[in-house]
Design a binder for these strands. Structure first.
Lengths: 201, 201, 201, 201
DNA sequence: TATGAATGAGACTTCATTCAT
DNA sequence: AATGAATGAAGTCTCATTCAT
């Protein structure tokens, strides 16, 4: 990569970082493109060399951040050597919740803008980049026991939505209860939902 | 209520109706206060006599619309004479999903702006107005068997969030599957979650 | 007219005057809407209450200014009691040229933006406003001898375009000769063109 | 001319051709330098190696195109063996009008940007380049009878402006009449104007 | 109460021009 | 000579909110 390429990469990253910083502190609506370029120390026109508009940079951020979180969780799961798909799902979920609980702004940002579609593309694009692929991601979780489960995508969809939307208001507003109080309920709910998708022999 | 009072009430209603109409067709972001007052046939300044800003009127609309939906569902449940809390919860849920599937715009509007807090206030304010109260609402569902359930608010929170967020993308985008395909999974998931909250004798 | 009406009228006029001032000194291209509102002492948004964009205000200015010039010329012609259509056309032409030679910027502005269509509407709209109408305008010139001329519109079109485009570069750049040197040629040319449209008895 | 020289020449020509193409289809105002370089397949900076700005390239184009049209008309006149200056002027004029009526975009472009000054330089520069010179151009028309005419430049100026500005709106908008209807009037007008400049013996 | 003209900050975008490579 | 990333001034336009009537 030549000097110019590196410089471009750095500019784009600086814009992404600054935008993320501002989106998570002031919120997307109150963050203007002027804010972003001023804080990033680049000219306004430069922004438009890299992104179509505010929503474009937001989408790219969500994809990036979501992928980072998932990868991190997957690596930790492997490191912790968790056995059994049910335990692994719970582990991943807890890891993500834990992470998001520490940066509520990120949760807020992701939640408001994340759709199932973007989520899928976050995992898919990782694949393209030879990083942790979505297929691989799920194989790491279900691995050897993949034939013991039916309708996996439906199950994951339900779990992701259930966990995502419940913890959102809990983390951001401690309402209707604290995360500590809620987690045991979430765990048992997830486990019982999963039971429905288990193939009994 | 005097003539003036009635006139005021009518203005406020006209603004609410127009805003709802526009929010659900154009979306909140693309609806300006100018749009609302122009369509409602009142002056711009008048808007500010009744509402603080666009978000204020949106909140009031959600409270109203949510309450209407819930009341309707409750009345239908009574009419159908459903037995057992589990069946009643499923019935209410199906009724709401059914209603929202017919007016996806309303679903979209409610979902994007509904928070647990507003939801609670929707039921609470009903109470104030001597209409169907939240307490009463839940009593109608659990009635005689209320002591057979523990942590009812948590359970309802989980069910509402799980159902709400899963059907959202399904109704609006038929993604990742159709509502028809999804409902059986949702039913069994809700039932198995509920089992966790049942007091066993 | 109420206070508010008067105030609005005054704002619009202030914008028109300022725009004219700037268009004729800096040129349309170099005049921004910011320039106009700053100089007029009104807010930017106010501009858009009265005009669609820069071209809208320019069109309105041309219509106004053209009409003013024509009216003035017509009144002077009457005052001077000129006899014969040929002499009257020459008089009007000279009067307009004279006027424009004194404010070359106005000539430049009108010329660059004047089209036959706008010109026609300038005279037409005068009619609506009960001011000097285009029909009346031409009747004052040709009056009693109107049946001695054929294809009047064609004749006027040729004269207007010939005079307009020749004096333009002459007044603005004294090129290819001075106005003084040119006028006799223009007079004889106009007279000989008119001869072609005269009905001989 | 070396290889490099040829390459440079080709770049300049490619820019000129592309600019002409865009100016006549989108209009000058809506054509950006980016448009030009993108379509020409050269880098933005390269543009500035050959032209000062958009107006510079436009001027050069007008000069070129005008000269081409005039030369073509002159050759055709010779080929047609027209006798008499009056007939020759009419022939040239008709040829140019005919040409421009077939490519209204070119007419529009030339008209909006052509000034008497550029026109003169168009003929003058031809001279420098040893091509058909303006002096020669006029000699071909008036040739043997040149001493029968006085104030030739004035006469030509009037005719060019009269013809140019009248046919402009007629060709582009068929307003206020069609070209067919108008041409006879133009012919007789030109002939009668010319009469004024004829030296009577 | 009701009005709607006026405000003005700030949104988003374009583009001619420069300059390091 | 050629490139094209970077610039940033300037452009048009929107809209929530205020306030005199």
């Amino acid at each position: 990569m030549g000097k110019v390429e590196l410089n471009k990469q750095e500019k784009e990253n600086r814009l992404l970082d600054t935008a993320f910083q501002l989106f998570t502190t002031k919120g997307m609506k109150k963050t203007s493109i002027s804010d972003i370029v001023n804080n990033a120390g680049v000219a306004k026109g430069t922004f438009y060399l890299y992104f179509k508009d505010k929503y474009d940079i937001a989408d790219k951020l969500i994809v990036t951040k979501t992928r980072e979180l998932c990868q991190q969780a997957a690596y930790r799961m492997l490191a912790a050597d968790i056995q059994g798909a049910e335990n692994r799902v719970i582990f991943i979920m807890d890891d993500l919740i834990n992470e998001l609980a520490q940066t509520p702004m990120l949760l807020n940002f992701i939640h408001k803008n994340l759709s199932w579609g973007i989520f899928r593309s976050a995992l898919t694009r990782a694949e393209e980049k030879q990083e942790l692929a979505s297929v691989e991601f799920f194989q790491r979780i279900f691995g050897e026991e993949i034939e013991h489960w039916k309708d996996l995508p439906v199950m994951l969809y339900i779990i992701i939505e259930m966990a995502g939307s419940t913890v959102h208001s809990i983390i951001l507003e401690n309402d209707p209860m604290t995360l500590e109080e809620f987690l045991p309920h979430l765990h048992s709910s997830v486990r019982s939902v999963m039971k429905n998708f288990q193939v009994l022999e």
